[in-house]
Design a protein around this nucleic acid. Structure first.
Lengths: 217, 217
DNA sequence: CGGCTCGTTGAGCTGCATCAAGGAAAGTGG
DNA sequence: CCACTTTCCTTGATGCAGCTCAACGAGCCG
């Protein structure tokens, strides 16, 4: 990605934190392999998952002038990243100005995904939230293998993770998944996601089918 | 901001859209005066407010490769912006590489604020959500006049706006605001916000007081 | 004055949380 | 290979925070 700069590769095991809430982080990471979640913890131990990062994502860019991260990042699967120290960013953009724009673009995309989730959590019912999440993850995952027409995937999440992402309890997620299964829309069992009826899923998720098409191709 | 490039100024009246959901937007805007909300509309007419933009914010940077905006932007007050066509961005960063980084930084900040709101909406009770919103807006507003120790401000929102931002109904927002008033924490009446007891507000909003201090100075 | 928009308050209902208990996979150590 | 543990899933009963529906009040504007 950045020819002129030697970015150093690094690996994390599933469950490890790439960086933690309230701690400094001196590099940005470009995720090359695996799944990472960004999350927030409350004092009472509950959690809100903020974002699912897939290969190609940029992580750890400082959101403020303080070097402290306001959220944590945890590897969902084994993960490989290439890291660039923050100090190297300015030299890099001076040599490769497009890099800065590309960075801004990547972050804007994450921001837009966050906005989507805000709408989902703020205004939709439990089943719509879950359907929306599954559909989006499925589409983003599939986008990595263009042309591949799978409707089954390995989704490295527990029902608790889904709850933490949608603002629900794992108990209620379980019931919603049960309904989706009964209605022949989606099966999710032990980290295996099958889309039985994509059209119905799009309908339940309350997403404009036109929009979905535009994502797919 | 960008000396080499003639950015053109533009004004919008309160209530006008700077850009709309599902339509193209060929420029980015740097907000110089006024309040702007970013929002999403559902088919049934309900709304989710995604972000409150204050002077200094950058708006309209494309979140995807399509030139369509996935959310709308509406002026809450009369607004002035300086606009830069998207086509001019590449030439600008070539001449001023730091510009790209600064852009990324601004967008990352908005993203971080969106993450905050996600946590608030996903995991907190109604009173915490409202308190959190008011506190954040107050702090961000006051940050524009450093050193100023006001605890009263003009907040150009209706209770419906607050509901749309927190994922609540305006009816329930009204009750929550009533409670906050009764408890001597905050008064919000006809677009005038008074913070009566900042410490209690921070407590109700479930925000780490340390963190608040770090925002203030 | 009459027609807005916005705020206020009450009554009743419901979607999701909470609490609780048990089942089924998968991992671990002998 | 089998006990044992841990993690995750499943299901039921009960309660409540916030929604819905409804009506009215209060400022504001033409």
């Amino acid at each position: 990605m950045v020819a002129s700069y030697k970015s150093s590769d690094r690996e994390f095991e599933a469950g490890q934190d790439l960086f933690s809430l309230g701690k400094p982080c001196d590099s940005i990471y470009n995720l090359t392999e695996g799944w990472v979640i960004l999350y927030n913890l409350l004092e009472d131990g509950r959690r809100q998952i903020l974002h699912f990062a897939l290969p190609g994502a940029v992580l750890g860019f400082h959101p403020g002038d303080s070097a402290m991260m306001t959220y944590g990042a945890q590897a969902l699967t084994d993960v490989t990243v290439s890291s660039i120290p923050h100090k190297a960013l300015l030299p890099i953009v001076k040599q490769q100005p497009e890099f800065g724009l590309r960075l801004a673009w990547l972050i804007a995309r994450d921001c837009s995904l966050a906005f989507d989730r805000l709408t989902s959590i703020g205004r939709h019912s439990a089943s719509k939230r879950v359907a929306h999440l599954l559909l989006k993850l499925f589409i983003r995952y599939r986008a990595q293998w263009p042309g591949n027409q799978i409707e089954e995937m390995h989704l490295p999440l527990t029902q608790e993770d889904i709850g933490d992402a949608t603002g629900l309890t794992s108990v209620h997620v379980n019931r919603v998944l049960g309904d989706l299964r009964k209605d022949g829309i989606v099966k999710f069992h032990y980290r295996r996601l099958q889309i039985i009826n994509p059209d119905k899923l799009i309908d339940v998720a309350r997403i404009d089918p036109q929009l979905v098409l535009s994502w797919i191709r």
